[in-house]
Design a binder for these strands. Structure first.
Length: 506
RNA sequence: GGCCCGUUCGUCUAGGGGUUAGGACGUUAGAUUUUCAUUCUAGAAACAGGGGUUCGAUUCCCCUACGGGCUACCA
């Protein structure tokens, strides 16, 4: 068993946007697979037709691509265990469910959803299991003849697992260690629905077996149904091939209580989905990390460290480093509250450490979105390099670089006017002359000449720096003003001084 | 209610029978930056409670409390 090739899977339902926690599950799957030279499979669990959402599968694929977590096998890439959509595997599941019935590990149940709802409402602690199954309508309580009649009449029915009495099911979770359950406490879960589709419980076991999955990662919310899955592996005769389980801690709301949900994002003002998700039915757009201006490197990094660390003080990891250093033993057991402030910090760190070339296409998109046309790549690279230390999210590049591409539309005149004098106007006219007569226009030389000129005119340099910045930038922000002037070039700098002078003297 | 899982600064976490309980985010103060941001320095800030075991428990065990998950013909 241990010498088998590692195979892991991410098995989302195509019901909407891809949640943070989902991406983290993908990440841990991916890291584990790559670290061990195994395969990463994407399987679409679309067995609930009522919740199926058009476009959600493609969206999931797009998210994985943005993150750079590409499955080795998937509905689109194919693979030796196709098909990878459960709806296309429908015929398979019934066979196994019937086998379980024949062997006495499952049974037909004819109760209607309404009858069961009634029971749940009227009987305290009602559950379909040991205590009540004999008083309900199923192939355990009915005679063989009655069952045959119902079946022949095509009476709607489901197949339920028959949980054994007075037993204990336990297993060793890779993250939690020993976990155990009393079978009497677990209800007889539905395996095959009336529409012939399997429930998650049956499908996950059958497909994990058929797809030769060796390690199964999923959220902690699945822990209570683990005994059902364990028993299924046993009853189907596949116990020796059962994957090792790892139940990942949940990602919790930053405030209050409970699992992080998309509503929390809207309420607290941060994204919960990887990418923008547009719901056709409601017309509602749920924002994503990508569109908000996160780099995928940062997104993965922050997800990885939510519940995992390498035991050192290192916090910034590239995907390659994560593959190298990841280990399940270092995944924490407790749920983690999501902290958007820290998430932004990861992004600012990644923007700072990224080369301008890496940022180019993202920054270009931000600027073009605002109507700024870029026709000089080298110039763009130079500008990115100068301002990237001051950007937290990608859209910040607009505010930080727009003035490199177009003249300020507005000037922070309030910061200039109170101390503005004719002498300063004269000074800047002299600066224009200075620039025109300067051979080499370089930051250090220009700054020296600028200050020498100020001294010659009897004005403190300190009084001129801010006005000069506002002439070029429009506001009180940005890199060193002489760097800006040189990047803008002689002609543009002069033009901006002239224009600002008319504004300041108006 | 029942079952299961968990519990170190506000948050993410390191540590682990004897430590000044470490780091990071955020926060506070200061330095640098004649702008803003970056950067740097310093500060405040935690072992849920009670019983054991032990010379000694934050660390091991038990109980309680609290938090979370599940309790659908949803995943």
């Amino acid at each position: 068993m241990s010498d088998k090739k590692v195979r892991v899977r991410f098995a989302p339902s195509p019901t909407g946007g891809l949640h943070l926690g989902g991406v983290r599950t993908v990440l841990f799957n991916y890291l584990f697979a790559k670290k061990t030279g195994g395969d990463f499979v994407l399987r679409i669990e679309d067995t609930d037709q009522s919740r199926y959402v058009e476009g959600a599968e493609q969206y999931i694929l797009d998210c994985l691509e943005w993150c750079g977590l590409i499955p080795d096998e998937s509905p689109v890439a194919g693979g030796p265990y196709a098909p990878y959509r459960q709806s296309e595997r429908k015929a398979l599941y019934r066979e196994y469910a019937e086998k379980l019935v024949r062997e006495g590990h499952a049974y037909y149940a004819f109760d209607t959803p309404e009858e069961l709802d009634k029971n749940r409402k009227e009987i305290p602690n009602f559950q379909y299991g040991l205590a009540y199954r004999d008083s309900l309508r199923n192939s355990l309580s009915l005679t063989e003849h009655e069952v045959d009649q119902l079946l022949d009449a095509h009476t709607p029915h489901v197949i339920r697992i028959k949980m054994p009495a007075d037993d204990r099911v336990s297993f060793n979770d890779m993250i939690r260690g020993h976990v155990s359950f009393e079978t009497n406490q677990v209800d007889d879960k539905v395996l095959l629905k009336a529409d012939g589709m399997p429930t998650y419980h049956l499908a996950v076991v059958v497909d994990d077996y058929l797809m030769k999955i060796t390690h199964a990662f999923r959220g902690e919310e699945w822990l209570p149904s683990a005994p059902v899955h364990l028993l299924l592996w046993e009853y189907l005769g596949w116990k020796a091939d059962m994957p090792q389980w790892a139940h990942l801690p949940l990602i919790l709301k930053p405030d209050g209580h409970g699992k992080l949900s998309k509503r929390d994002g809207a309420r607290l003002g941060f994204p919960v989905y990887a990418m923008n998700w547009f719901d056709e039915k409601s017309g509602e757009l749920t924002p994503g990390f990508r569109e908000l201006g996160f780099l995928p490197e940062a997104f993965l990094n922050l997800l990885a460290t939510l519940g995992w660390n390498d035991g050192t003080d290192q916090e910034i990891f590239s995907l390659d480093e994560l593959v190298d250093k990841f280990s399940l033993e270092r995944v924490s057991k407790a749920g983690a509250k999501f902290d958007f402030e820290k998430a932004k910090w990861f992004n600012s760190e990644w923007i700072k450490k990224s080369e301008a070339g890496r940022l180019k296409s993202e920054v270009r998109a931000v600027l073009e979105d605002k109507g700024i046309v870029i026709n000089d790549d080298a110039y763009l690279l130079q500008v990115i390099d100068k301002v990237k230390d001051r950007c937290v999210l990608l859209p910040d590049f607009y505010h930080q670089t727009a003035y490199f591409f177009e003249q300020p539309k507005e000037y922070d005149v309030n910061s200039v006017k109170p101390k503005w004098t004719d002498a300063k106007t004269d000074f800047f006219k002299a600066v224009i002359n200075l620039i025109n007569t300067t051979e080499a226009f370089e930051p250090v030389e220009f700054e020296a000449a600028f200050k020498a000129l100020a001294e010659e005119k009897g004005i403190k340099a300190g009084e001129l720096m801010l006005p000069f910045r506002i002439m070029l930038v429009g506001g009180k922000f940005g890199p060193h003003v002489f760097d800006i002037a040189v990047i803008l070039g002689k002609a543009e700098t002069i033009s901006r001084i002239e224009k600002a002078l008319t504004v300041f003297n108006a």
